[in-house]
């Protein structure tokens, strides 16, 4: 298996929150710590969060497309595939920065669908006990 090539942010002025060596060995500790603090204590906006890694390190490739987490072009998967370490983060978290996610489709059709369901349910009113 070839040694992974890791995507460096195109904007070279950007600096990681820790030196490269430190991040290579201990990134999971930073992320885990931040995860529990955010989830249980509501502490937000610290630089160690997963979304911050993603925001810098996941960018469109030369073809203008983002490589998803399944691809070994993806910043995280590049090493994880090489090291055969499975990560679950992206089963719940988006694998790319929000600005590269297109959202438009569902809102209006969704509204119509709901109105219909509601109209149907109002003819046969039911609910929880009071």
């Amino acid at each position: 298996m070839p040694f992974p090539t890791v995507h460096e942010p195109k904007d070279e002025s950007k600096k990681c929150i820790q030196p490269e060596d430190e991040m290579r060995r201990n990134h999971m500790k930073y992320i885990l710590h931040e995860r529990d603090e955010t989830m249980h204590e509501g502490i937000r906006g610290e630089p160690e969060g997963l979304s911050n890694c993603i925001d810098c390190h996941v960018e469109p490739g030369d073809n203008g497309e983002i490589a998803g987490i399944e691809s070994k072009e993806h910043f995280c998967n590049a090493c994880h595939q090489y090291a055969a370490v499975q990560i679950d983060c992206f089963q719940c978290h988006a694998d790319r920065p929000q600005k590269y996610i297109k959202r438009d489709e569902h809102s209006s059709s969704l509204h119509q669908q709901l109105q219909q369901t509601l109209a149907a349910s109002e003819t046969s009113a039911k609910g929880v006990n009071q």
């Binding site: 959202r103 569902h106 809102s107 969704l110 669908q113 709901l114």
Partner: peptide, 21 residues
Amino acid sequence: ARGCTSCVDACNEANGLEGKT
């Protein structure tokens, strides 16, 4: 209001839910 689903729509939108029932 009966028949109004604004709260439901807004929730689905905010949380990225598909809105299926």
